[in-house]
């Protein structure tokens, strides 16, 4: 792991020092999604992504990562005074997560910042494999982002706190309100955005989550009272 870290750090540092070699003007204000630039009023940027997570073996009892990729559609809509609204829907077929929230972005030249919060409503339904189960809940994601625009790409970091608001489940005719701790955990992600071919921009991202309850694996009904590290790799198209 240390070798991995060294390699990663040194090369990224080198990259940023020498990026002027690749001087070419690209329009990041219109084509990036995670980079927290300011938005024109009514400007829209949307993205379509796929995320693969390495779920904790203690919960899912397998090291299979491809079981439930998360597909996501996200949209940002520019508002006056550097505000914007972001909405998204994520799904792994048996689960849907809808998020909506305001953000305030500010840019110092190539350095952008964002503060915001998202309200999440998630619901799941499973009626195969011996399940007769429905599930839904609410969560809050206060978040902060920072990003820098290099000559040929942008690099952004986004971190969230995750709070559980409410959750209930129904199995057959049995229904309960789940007891979840209010503070669920936190996440941090790093997103590299750049043109892939022509004017088509993509995002390569890694996101680390440290959560007691990770909503896509609700059907495991985890009862562990401890936070798990769940890494996600994401690939996103921007349009």
């Amino acid at each position: 792991m240390k070798i991995f870290l060294l390699l990663f750090t040194i090369l990224f540092a080198q990259t940023f020092l020498l990026t002027p070699l690749f001087a070419q003007q690209l329009n990041f204000q219109e084509n990036t999604f995670f980079y927290p630039h300011t938005y024109e009023n009514r400007q829209i940027v949307s993205s379509l992504g796929i995320a693969l997570a390495k779920l904790p073996e203690d919960v899912v009892e397998t090291d299979d990562v491809f079981r439930a990729p998360l597909f996501s559609y996200r949209l940002k809509y520019g508002l006056p005074e550097n505000f914007l609204a972001e909405g998204s829907v994520e799904t792994n077929i048996v689960t849907f997560n809808f998020m909506l929230g305001p953000k305030w972005n500010y840019q110092f030249d190539k350095l952008g910042f964002s503060l915001g919060t998202d309200l999440s409503f998630y619901l799941g339904k499973l009626e195969q494999f011996g399940f007769d189960t429905k599930f839904n809940g609410w969560a809050l994601y206060p978040n902060i982002s920072a990003g820098y625009q290099f000559e040929k790409f942008t690099l952004s970091v986004k971190s969230e706190l995750v709070f559980n608001l409410a959750e209930q489940s129904k199995n057959g005719e049995s229904e309960i309100e789940n007891d979840l701790d209010f503070f669920n955990g936190w996440t941090i992600g790093m997103y590299l955005e750049q043109p892939f071919w022509g004017d088509n921009y993509v995002v390569l991202g890694v996101r680390s989550t440290f959560l007691k309850f990770y909503y896509p694996m609700w059907a495991a009904f985890s009862t562990f009272d401890r936070a798990f590290y769940i890494p996600e790799a994401t690939f996103t198209f921007i349009f």
């Binding site: 040929k152 750049q194 043109p195 071919w197 022509g198």
Partner: peptide, 8 residues
């Protein structure tokens, strides 16, 4: 290898 930095 498209014209930018990224290849797949």
């Amino acid at each position: 290898n498209p014209e930018h930095l990224l290849s797949i």
